[in-house]
Design a protein around this nucleic acid. Sequence first.
DNA 1: TGCTTGTTGAGACTGAGTCTCAAGTAGAAA
DNA 2: TTTCTACTTGAGACTCAGTCTCAACAAGCA
Lengths: 159, 159
Amino acid sequence: MKRFIEVEQLLKTQGIRLTAQRALVLRRAVAYLHFTAEELVKDVREIDASVARGTVYRTLALLHRAGVVEKHDFRYGPPNYEVTFAKAHHDHLMCVQCGEIIEFQEPRVEALQQAVVKRFGYQLLSHTHKLYGLCRACQHADPRRAPKHPHLHVEEVVA
Amino acid sequence: MKRFIEVEQLLKTQGIRLTAQRALVLRRAVAYLHFTAEELVKDVREIDASVARGTVYRTLALLHRAGVVEKHDFRYGPPNYEVTFAKAHHDHLMCVQCGEIIEFQEPRVEALQQAVVKRFGYQLLSHTHKLYGLCRACQHADPRRAPKHPHLHVEEVVA
DNA sequence: TGCTTGTTGAGACTGAGTCTCAAGTAGAAA
DNA sequence: TTTCTACTTGAGACTCAGTCTCAACAAGCA
């Protein structure tokens, strides 16, 4: 709820009107850690079926432009969204078997990134850094069970 | 041509039949550094219009399974493919303005990745690490010109 | 109250990729 | 050779995620 109110403030300062539909989309989005666009559509429409799919997508795009949500292309399944507003920068580690997503910080990697771009005369704007592997449980589990996709998963935020 | 022949050998050892259509797709793919599936379809069909779109996609999937081709999700535009066979591992740095893609190697990052997964008890299988920025030329160029997409671009391979 | 502008729902549309299926082809077996 | 089987193909329908269009509606201002 706290985050919802903070985002509400932010949108106000940007002159973006927070309609009932947008508020609903935002409220549902902040409830998740990672979600896909279609999952959010389904979730929102379960609460209010009159909200159109297009409205959810439009709101997601709006929140993205406002710097509230980020889009992640994980290798498995459709793109994932995340409300990154008021959250420290982090990268992701994903279990390819169960889909668990862990957020991690590694400042030494960021330093090396700066060194790389400097080497080529680039100015760094952003990056994606994703690690794929097997979590402890999946390393010992039956490998034949079907892999899940990385949606709506619990995450650990790591300082 | 050398790479084409090497891949041909590899497919033979895997018992994969190299039909005329597949050979054409492969020959065109190795000619590129990075390409999108649709670009490859267009290119192949310019040479032989009788090759179906589905065949190009099927062959691409086949080459991917055989470990010859890798898929990259850059943030701008559709996924990029790359013939990585007999090529050293590398990550990518992309100019978001002109679409230039530079391949780089940074073993110290790889070492840190191992440290991260160890921290969480994961077994690392693969990773994606992409840096986005402005190349030297684009830092000084008119920022209003339309950004290009990262297709078919010249790359530098860095030892 | 009227005007302007922004937002919405509905649904058509798009692009990228997948699937199906009948026809064609390669290579092994007879 | 011919026959058989399994694989591969072209054509095109289909799917899925996402975008666009447009008429109706709502908010905020004068």
